[in-house]
Design a protein around this nucleic acid. Structure first.
Lengths: 351, 351
DNA sequence: TGAGGCGTTGATAACGATGTCACGGATTGT
DNA sequence: ACAATCCGTGACATCGTTATCAACGCCTCA
């Protein structure tokens, strides 16, 4: 056996990539001049620019942005790290898209990763971003504290939290009007005559879940509804669990007349259960976060809609502003939610 | 006025980032030894490893992956570029998620961008990826030819196309069973007694649209249905346009008894129009690509479902395999579609 | 006409990491 | 006991780019 080996892509056919040196040689100029042309720096003669452009085109030259970044004064990688719930989730997708649009305008590329509400993933992904020297971070978090980001903040990396407020660090955050939105939803149900309103919640350790539950409870309190009537069910991790939870509620001795489901997947699970149990027109439902085609269901689903586009756009705006030297004090930006009345939330008890 | 300036993040508070030299100095070893520890290379004493780890932790050291990449033999940036229709679109999101999962396993980060069916964007985004020296590319395309990628392919960069086949280059592609899926949908409608089946299509220059239309036409031909009965409407760019198109169809002198909508947003637009015109239970509808909650609508929507998870997973698998030296010949992988019968596709004419 | 300035250009060091290689000390084999 | 080997380690060159600075030629103005 010889020592011949093909460790990776076939080295026989692999053509080397053109560097500035190659371009410089072909154009008959120095590398620094190529650099000047590529970066649009002034004081290069038109003739030289043409020669260099030609050579670069011939060789399919693409500058190595990271090699440049190594020496460049501003050390910008033109890259952002984005961590969202899951890139497969429409809410996250809308945030991602808004961030991409803002970043693309400035030639900035975006790393996007999924958190899955897993603290370990959070740390790993952030580390992955940091090792790639992203210029800024937009993060949804799951860990108990984001104190580990302090050194990065001190270094000057702009960090903006989205969807959930951070713990253990001061930084910008962009979140939905969670407690108020939940209160509005709850009040809406109360105004339609309900007192037995169940709350279907996510995992206890998720900040948005606690905020929404707080809004729900506060509103019940304001209406003078006994907390005995509040059926708070937490720890619902997916659509199937939500379905089961509602099945159980309906089978219980004292079912609620209305349901407030505090999240996307939980809402669809609830819809399925209500449908299965033929209770869709009997039990009111208001969901937190809009769902696709909710207006075409029967009944159409009343929701408190979030504004993920706005959340993403605002987060990107803040990060980019900080990169441009903006020193506005860190704060939490609250993006309003909107009650969208469609039918399911206007069902009255005992109908 | 002094020459003091604050070009970017406040240089007064900006702490420098720790490099291997700093870690080496603190640990009292050479930089190469730090490199060995960080990369888990063998032949370092346990005591030295401990010293280095300690120092690295104290300084919050994160290695600069791109600086290393510059000198490293394999030149891997541990990064993939992914270009999809739009990161806000559930189909794209599912692909993205599958790619992310496969990549994350190997510590690879993913750049994700949206194409918006814009050839100019395609070129710009690919260039953006290339300048960042991604290890591989997974691309949805909009331009007439991908010939511009030839130099990159020759260089050995693995490229896999998703959703649409490339033109002008030979490369792996992972696509849905478009023509066949469309034929299955069409046959399904024919089997339920329809002959006047309208086709609602996307922009003409989109490969998937042409494939699906081909499947539709072929199937009509096989059934001996006159092409006069085929009402092909193309150039539908969004949901609103689809709605309008169906409104027009219904108002025409000779409306179809069934509709095959060849895409996601077009399907929802069609549903809305049918609903508005009170025709949902009279005119059959089969959509290409599944939509959320389709099973809860009235009627529930029959669709030919794609499998974006599978498409993404397969594309990622191919790219990663090529990175590992796999030299299987380039080919197009066809991911099967599935007819999901729910109700709207089983409505008979004249009901 | 000669000093000074400006526009254009390239040689060289440096960025933060890894590949190479050489060195010293410990271990092994005979 | 001595050579051969192996292990642990660090000095140095290097990857592709940009910052610095010096040099050159040409123009301007006194």
């Amino acid at each position: 056996m010889t020592s011949l080996s093909t460790p990776h892509h076939d080295p026989v056919t692999a053509k080397p990539r053109a560097t500035m040196r190659h371009v410089a040689a072909l154009a008959g100029v120095g590398v620094k001049t190529v650099s000047r042309v590529v970066n649009g720096e002034p004081n290069v003669s038109a003739a030289t620019i043409a020669k260099v452009r030609d050579a670069a085109r011939q060789l399919n030259f693409e500058p190595d942005i990271h090699a440049g970044n190594l020496r460049r004064a501003d050390r910008r990688s033109q890259t952002l790290g984005l961590l969202v719930g899951s890139v497969a989730n429409p809410f996250s997708g809308a945030i991602h898209r808004a961030v991409e649009d803002a970043a693309a305008e400035k030639g900035i590329a975006v790393f996007a990763s999924s958190l899955d509400d897993d603290p370990t993933r959070e740390r790993g992904i952030v580390s992955t971003f940091l090792r790639r020297r992203v210029d800024g971070l937009i993060l949804t978090t799951a860990s108990k504290s984001q104190g580990y980001l302090l050194p990065e903040l001190e270094h000057g990396t702009p960090i903006v939290f989205v969807d959930r407020e951070p713990v253990g660090v001061e930084a910008d955050a962009v979140v939905s009007d969670n407690a108020n939105g939940a209160a509005v939803a709850t009040r809406h149900l109360i105004e339609h005559g309900h007192t037995r309103i169940a709350f279907l919640g996510d995992r206890e350790d998720i900040w948005t879940m606690r905020e929404r539950r707080r809004g729900y409870r506060d509103e019940l309190g304001r209406a003078g509804i006994s907390s005995n009537d509040a059926q708070v069910i937490g720890g619902i991790v997916d659509e199937q669990a939500a379905r089961q939870a509602v099945d159980d509620l309906l089978a219980s001795g004292n079912p609620p007349t209305a349901i407030f489901s505090s999240q996307n997947l939980i809402t669809t699970g609830a819809i399925r259960s209500l449908r299965d149990n033929d209770a869709g027109h009997r039990i009111a439902l208001v969901g937190f976060d809009d769902i696709a085609l909710a207006d075409l269901l029967d009944p159409a689903i009343t929701v408190v809609a979030q504004n993920p586009q706005r959340i993403g756009a605002l987060a990107a705006e803040r990060v980019l502003a900080k990169l441009d030297g903006d020193t506005t004090a860190d704060q939490t930006y609250v993006v309003p939610t909107t009650l969208i009345v469609r039918g399911s939330g206007e069902i009255r008890p005992n109908e």
